[in-house]
Computed example of a mutant assay.
Amino acid sequence: MPTAVKQEKEDNAIKRSNSSLNFKKLVPKVLRSSSMKNPFKSKKPRTPLDVVRETRALLVYLDSGEDAANPKHDEKLELLDADIRELKSILYGIDESEPVPEACAQLTQEFFKEDTMRLLINCLPKLNFEARKDASRVIANLQRQPVQSRLIASDYLEANLDIMDQLIAGYEDPVVALHYGGMLRECIRHQVVARYVLKPEHVKKFFDYIQLPNFDVASDAAATFKELMTRHKSTVAEFLAENYTWFFAEFNSKLLESTNYMTRRHAVKLLGDILLDRSNAGSMIRYVSSKDNMRVLMNLLRESHKSIQIDAFHVFKLFVANQNKPADIVNILCANRTKLLRFLTGFNMDKEDEMFEADKAQVMKEIMELEPTTSFSCSGELFKPISV
């Protein structure tokens, strides 16, 4: 090899060596760690199991109550927010991409393997508003996620029904009321949960929650109450049969006779849904055999709000259609015959409705054909119609 070429190679080798030495001197040691060997190497994607496990660990930390003294509290909270957001993305998909069933099943199984749901509910007040919304959506979605054709959320909740106590009581805290309410409605999808919530000590709370001064919270409570009283028909029928007396006494006095328009409106619509359901036929017959109940409905017919009048009519017609009307109800209808017929003649829907007109015609026919009993007294006159 020529001497000039050999010398040039040796000079280049020295330059490379010096360059390496200079780099080591100038670059901090932390940047020369093993993790920086390939800065362009992609990070291994996390599995749904990884996300759930990290979420659970962060929730355990947050639930421990040690957060105030931890200097990394904000960092952990941000990480938890990101994890909850990622859980939502897996379950709902991102943008236009559909969720992957296998990933959803893995996530669901891991989520209910331990007490992650309870932890998330406990920690909800400590999360920011967006994270609370995401957490609520995650829990709602998980109630509907099948794992090998089985809703394992139902099994988990059956073993942890006391969680429902916390969700119900959430209506007393405006910060979490709407979030807890939404989760509670989704949990009521499971019959085992509905049966637990349909206990007197729980149901009685809803009569108060529906009348809360906060309109949004009261409306949400009314939506949950409707879901509870209409979804699982056999369970509701059993509850009404066992609790008929106190339930309808409170329903009438606290809801149908409430001074709040929206409370009355929701209540009379729900009453119709309950009584017109065939599963509740026994309770319906008992309800329409009471003159006190009929008095409440006749007063609702006199409402100035058309929507309440129409829903009240659909319940009132059951009293008239009852083929075994008690004598006191027959007498009251007879005593109010003229006023009722005059009212019904001018009572029309805003839009033409053939079924409504047929029902109204049948009610008027029944009232016209009634004969008072021997104990008939004009003291039965109750109906004082207003203009319609």
Rank of each mutant, 00 (worst) to 15 (best):
V27F: 08
N18A: 14
V268N: 04
F356P: 00
G170W: 00
T373A: 08
F316Q: 05
C334R: 02
K199L: 07
T373W: 10
T373L: 13
D63T: 09
E381C: 12
G346T: 08
L127P: 01
S375D: 14
L142F: 01
R16N: 13
F225Q: 00
P101R: 03
D359F: 06
S289R: 01
L59W: 07
N160H: 05
D134T: 05
I285M: 06
Y171D: 04
P125F: 01
G346H: 11
F376T: 01
V100P: 05
K126M: 08
K113E: 13
N22A: 15
L21M: 08
A153P: 03
D63E: 12
L318C: 07
P372F: 05
V51M: 11
I152R: 02
L120G: 03
L120H: 02
A312Y: 05
D353K: 06
A358Q: 09
L276T: 15
S283K: 04
L370H: 03
N299L: 13
G181R: 05
S258E: 08
K325Q: 13
D311M: 10
K360T: 02
E250P: 04
L58T: 07
F206P: 01
K291P: 00
V197C: 04
A105R: 02
N12V: 15
Q362L: 13
E114P: 03
E8V: 14
Y180S: 03
V147K: 06
L26Y: 12
R32E: 07
S42A: 08
W246K: 12
E75W: 04
A4P: 00
F248N: 09
N141F: 03
P213E: 13
D95P: 00
T3Q: 10
S33G: 15
R337W: 02
A169W: 02
D134W: 03
Q7T: 15
Q309I: 07
T55M: 09
F247W: 10
R302F: 06
S154G: 03
M36D: 05
P2I: 13
A237P: 02
D350F: 09
R185S: 15
Y171M: 07
L178T: 05
P213D: 15
M364R: 00
L271T: 05
K76I: 14
R144D: 13
Y196I: 10
M368A: 11
M229C: 12
Y287A: 00
R337C: 02
I367R: 00
I332R: 04
I367A: 04
E75F: 08
N299D: 14
A68R: 11
G93S: 08
A281F: 08
M36N: 09
S377M: 10
F248C: 13
A140T: 06
A169Q: 07
L178H: 00
L127G: 00
T47A: 14
M117K: 00
K15P: 04
K133T: 09
P48K: 07
K269I: 07
N12Q: 12
